[in-house]
Design a binder for these strands. Structure first.
Lengths: 251, 251
DNA sequence: CGGCGGCTTGAAGGACGTCAAGATTAGTGG
DNA sequence: CCACTAATCTTGACGTCCTTCAAGCCGCCG
């Protein structure tokens, strides 16, 4: 796959349509806040200094790398990404998957370097927020500060859930439901979606072997909990899945 | 120390010596910041509205309970506490242990309720920070805002470490070293300390059975990595422990 | 078609949990 | 001060869930 030459789109570049950021970032967690803040003229000016559209990152390209100096957090604008670390024994631990609207890089604030790699799973577009500028803005706009605190706090909660001691079935059920919930950005429930990551990534995320992932999915199929065909997924029995995952909910 | 009879102390009460908060909270993460902020007179006034000394909480008493409405974060002033959740099957998951100077309750910001119980392991004193007041202060004092962001971000990193897939030995080594590092609040390394929690809590924290905790400690003893006598602990071979824990470092 | 990466499936082995007693220790009352 | 009870901790035997190893199977792209 060496040849992602210029045929596959020149290179990551800033998108052309920055003109109307407020509309463009409608999916972003900061969208509503900025929209509200945009009512105020001077704040709107700050905004342009703050946010920078970047992408596309192609499949397997790095959005940032572990060890790089922290300078910005990223909001997914399109596509899906994962964060991961590789330990000294070469084993990959997938920390999380990120869907449009979600934010990457919050765990880099404290160490002041990115503690993990962020990698595109397909073609990814992001908003890059200078953290220095963001903190300054947060001091002026309470809503921005509050949203940042909430995001960070939610990050702790999310990480904590994964830390628990659960069976493969529980983890998998929770994972599938969580993805569905997150795809359901707006109101109506999604029962059908596509896993954009390989089994390996799911396994490394849930602390399982890929073989176990396969087997659990098969068992779920046999028990009519889901339907799977490759990466296409359908949730058939959400209540029973929820029951399985009852101890891993993020309320 | 037998007589905590009628004692059981009437109830947690505010300590008498609030007079000199700046000295009293020398161990607290906010200490230095407030001390600096204290230079400014109007900020010092905010401080008194913000922080409230509470305790003592006796062994097994709750500092807060899961589900209670979030209003404040707590800095440990004395004693040791744990946070935990109990799942629907009655199994306890210990999320963390907290030593003097450390902060509890950050994971409650987002859900706006405490997502876990906080329980004293011995006699505990805390500083209670009204979070509403703290955010207002953060908007005025960049250092406070920055410290909050750092604390929250560090919380994500910490939770993430526990989420990884590691053997019992790796976990235990990392746990023992982490405690030693944290006891080493100031400069010089501690090789000898006392575990203030029962084996059960260690087990539920590291996702192990208490029997496994016992066995691992025994093996560490046999291999001259540590010495244990009940809850008294001595680290004998820190380098080899660090090597065991190499994949769980919080850099 | 042929090859290659991702996925599935089966069989064997290991790390840790569970169950069941003991051994310490600590807490309590005489 | 000591005995007694209960909790905590240890130790061993056995079971289980998941991993590891080893093939086979698809689906995709040249």
């Amino acid at each position: 796959m060496g040849r992602m030459i210029r045929s596959r789109l020149p290179q990551p570049h800033v998108l052309a349509d920055d003109g109307d950021e407020r509309n463009f970032c409608s999916t972003c967690v900061f969208g509503p806040i900025f929209w509200a803040a945009g009512m105020d003229k001077s704040s709107l000016h700050d905004l342009h200094a703050l946010v920078e559209h970047a992408g596309p990152y192609r499949k397997d390209e790095y959005i940032f790398r572990r060890g790089e100096r922290f300078g910005a957090i990223f909001a997914m604008r399109g596509g899906v990404a994962k964060t991961r670390v590789i330990d000294d024994d070469g084993r990959e631990q997938v920390l999380g998957f990120f869907l449009p609207g979600e934010v990457i890089g919050l765990d880099a604030i404290h160490p002041e370097i990115y503690p993990c790699d962020a990698i595109a799973l397909d073609t990814v577009y992001v908003c890059r927020f200078s953290f220095a500028a963001l903190t300054m803005l947060a001091a002026k706009l309470p809503d921005v500060q509050r949203q940042l605190f909430r995001l960070l706090s939610a990050g702790i909660g999310k990480a904590t859930i994964l830390a628990g001691d659960h069976t493969a079935d529980e983890r998998m059920a929770a994972f599938l439901l969580d993805l569905a919930d997150r795809y359901t950005t707006r109101g109506f429930p999604v029962k059908c979606y596509r896993l954009m990551m390989p089994r390996t990534d799911i396994a490394n995320h849930l602390r399982l072997a890929t073989e176990t992932v396969s087997r659990v999915l098969r068992r779920f199929c046999d028990n009519a909990l889901i339907r799977v065909k490759g990466r296409a997924l359908e949730l058939l029995d959400v209540p029973r899945l929820r029951h399985l995952a009852r101890n891993l909910r993020h309320d």
